[in-house]
Amino acid sequence: MILVGVALLVWGLGWWVNTRLAEGPRAQSRAMQLLVPVIFGATILLVWELLVRGLQVPLVILPAPSLIAQRFAGSLPILWADFVQTILKGALGGYVIGCAAAFATAILVDRSDFLRRGLLPVGNFLAALPIVGTAPILVMWFGFDWHSKAAVVVVMVFFPVLVNTVAGLNETSAMQRDQMRTYAAGYWQSFFKLRLPAAMPFIFNGLKIATTLALVGAIVAEFFGSPTVGMGFRISASVGQLALDMVWAEIVVAALAGSLFYGLVAMIEKAVTFWHPSQRS
């Protein structure tokens, strides 16, 4: 009970500190924008730890953060192998293939107005469907190993990237196209010098959406069958053994991988579309 009381105290303290900081004079500074959410996150972790210990929550319901951290540190080789299998091979492999295929299709479609008008609604429709459900089919076709996971990822990322790229390539104004005409520029000249750069913010929007989808696809596809390695496999196997500390450790890996992947694409975006109003500060 003491620990529960401490937990409540920690929560109040964390909130009080954050309130002071958020209403303080330097709230707009970069450091504060970072510090406040970090304090909030740390408070949650601490309260979680104290409550789990104080109420003696059994491991099979909710393991304490310290236990998860312990498990994480103790299982690094397994986690790394799972990470390589699911993220580097399945998700990243599928992401690269899927995005490249979507991009190539977008360029093909772009030359025909008829195709574009037909494909955009169909693509938008398909992008909203629960495509992850194709996993059992693709597992059946490509086997249990990472190839089938990559195939699921390809299908999942294809439509969002395609739709965004096609939309982006049409972002130029009538004036910009007229200007290219006055230079008597050819198709590829105006493609590379005008339309592709102008499309970049849209393309990156699609690429960013696709990072999360890639991870979801690779992990969920493993629920339909996988070799004895991989994050999705480990999660479902550990859930079966009620080893929830391992499940949480995998979720930590998934969270880190997801943020890292997204952050990486966002960084490239910043470098490529530095000129866009949303990137200038």
Binding site: L21, V36, T212, A257
Partner: peptide, 20 residues
Amino acid sequence: VMDMSVMPWAIVSQTIPIIA
């Protein structure tokens, strides 16, 4: 204070496969 504490985490949650 809620904005500064919670919002960054809500945004980060969009980039991770919470379906796991």
